[in-house]
Amino acid sequence: MKLKEQELAGRLKKGETPCVVLLFGAEQGRIARQAQALSLWALGGDADADFDAESFQAGELKDDDAISRFSSSLRALPFLAPRRLVRLKEAHTLPAAAREELKLYLKDPADSTLLLITAGELEAKNAVRKTVEGMDAGWAAPFYPLEGAAFTQWIEQTLRASGFAPERDALELLTELLTGDTRAAEPELEKLKNYVGEPGPVLVSDVAAVVSNASLHSGFELVAQLVAGNAPAALNTMARLWEHDAEPIPLLGLIAARIRRIAIAQTLLAEGAQPKSIAGKLRIFWKEQDAFFAQCRQLSPRLLAAALEQCLEADKGLKGMDGRPPEQVMESLVMALASLFGARGRPQSGSGSSRRG
């Protein structure tokens, strides 16, 4: 059956016992935490994972022997735990033969086993997803990246759980610098807590000193250079980012998020909303608001749509679909966006702007 992320814990508390749980989506951080909670529930406090738990990488189930071991594990009885736990990781990479074997098992799953399947993004027509969603004893829950206020709330809750109280501007800056993937954000929040030291207030200066330098150093500068069409400066900034071990996916997220926010702000402005209200709604860091609304005036919806298409292609490249190294994918994106945005100020061929009469 289809469930929301928030429904999983409640159903377990009610005593419901699924035979199969599928957790899938782009938000791997929350998937990992939910998988850990389900594993503890399945095994109980006194279980020995060496006897009652087994884990398989979907992409490795390529030959008959590997598929047979997987099938046997699913049908084995628990030794000490209330039920046996079998993990199937990265199910989006499952080979065809193993997928058919899994579909057969899902028709008659073992009551004494919890098959916990985790995966990246799965289309609605994916065979495993469709099968689990149609099972009474199967739960399928998607995990989407947190955006906007939801991501800000997660950041605040994560910090406050350890006794740290971020000020408003610090939260806004964290939301801008980090991405909706909590797995990528958690290490940066740990660095921030270590920098601040004792639990207490977290200032915007703390965030600027730690997170921006550690993860997305000069990220705002890069976006501004791209929007200005300044390719040489943007490439120099990219070089500094690599020197500071910036991760390509969060960096792409920062660029795409900025473009999406500009597009949303343009729509709201056209509907008569005031800039102050828009800045609050989109959680634009106050020091960035003048530059942000200047970009809203400079860029056309057509350019923004084309820029988001470029970001989508880069996302595919970072997932290995074109075989290029991540740094090359991002540098190509920088060149493409700088060229795209830079072209807005150049006269079009045949536009009548030539000096020749």
Rank of each mutant, 00 (worst) to 15 (best):
A9H: 08
E16I: 07
T17K: 12
F24D: 04
A26P: 06
R30A: 10
A32E: 13
R33P: 03
R33M: 00
S39I: 03
L40I: 01
W41C: 05
A42R: 03
G44D: 01
G44Y: 11
D46F: 00
D48I: 04
D50H: 10
D52E: 02
E54P: 09
S55P: 05
F56V: 09
A58K: 07
D65I: 01
I67C: 00
R69M: 08
F70M: 00
S71N: 01
S71R: 13
S73Y: 05
F79C: 03
L80S: 08
A81P: 02
R83L: 06
R83A: 10
R84W: 06
L88Q: 12
K89V: 07
K89P: 05
A96C: 00
A97E: 00
Y105E: 04
K107T: 07
A110M: 03
A110L: 02
T113F: 04
T113A: 10
I117S: 01
G120I: 09
E121A: 12
E123D: 15
N126V: 04
R129V: 08
R129Y: 04
E133H: 02
G134M: 00
A140S: 13
P145W: 07
E147A: 12
A149E: 13
A150L: 00
W154Y: 09
I155K: 03
T158F: 02
A165C: 11
R168N: 07
L177E: 05
D181E: 14
T182D: 09
L189N: 13
K193A: 11
V196D: 06
V196P: 09
E198K: 10
E198D: 00
P201K: 12
S205Q: 15
D206Y: 05
A208N: 06
A209T: 08
S212E: 15
V223D: 06
V223E: 09
Q225T: 08
G229S: 09
A231Q: 05
A234T: 04
N236K: 15
M238H: 13
R240I: 11
L241D: 03
W242I: 06
E243W: 09
H244K: 15
A246F: 05
P248V: 01
L252P: 04
G253H: 08
A256W: 01
R258I: 08
R260Q: 14
A270D: 13
Q274S: 14
K276D: 14
K281W: 07
E288A: 15
Q289W: 01
C296N: 10
Q298F: 01
L299S: 08
P301L: 04
L303G: 12
A306E: 15
E313L: 14
K316C: 03
L318C: 11
L318I: 06
K319Q: 12
K319A: 02
G323F: 01
R324K: 15
Q328K: 09
M330G: 00
E331P: 10
S332V: 02
V334Q: 12
V334W: 13
A338L: 00
G342W: 00
A343W: 08
G345V: 04
S351P: 06
S354V: 04
S354K: 10
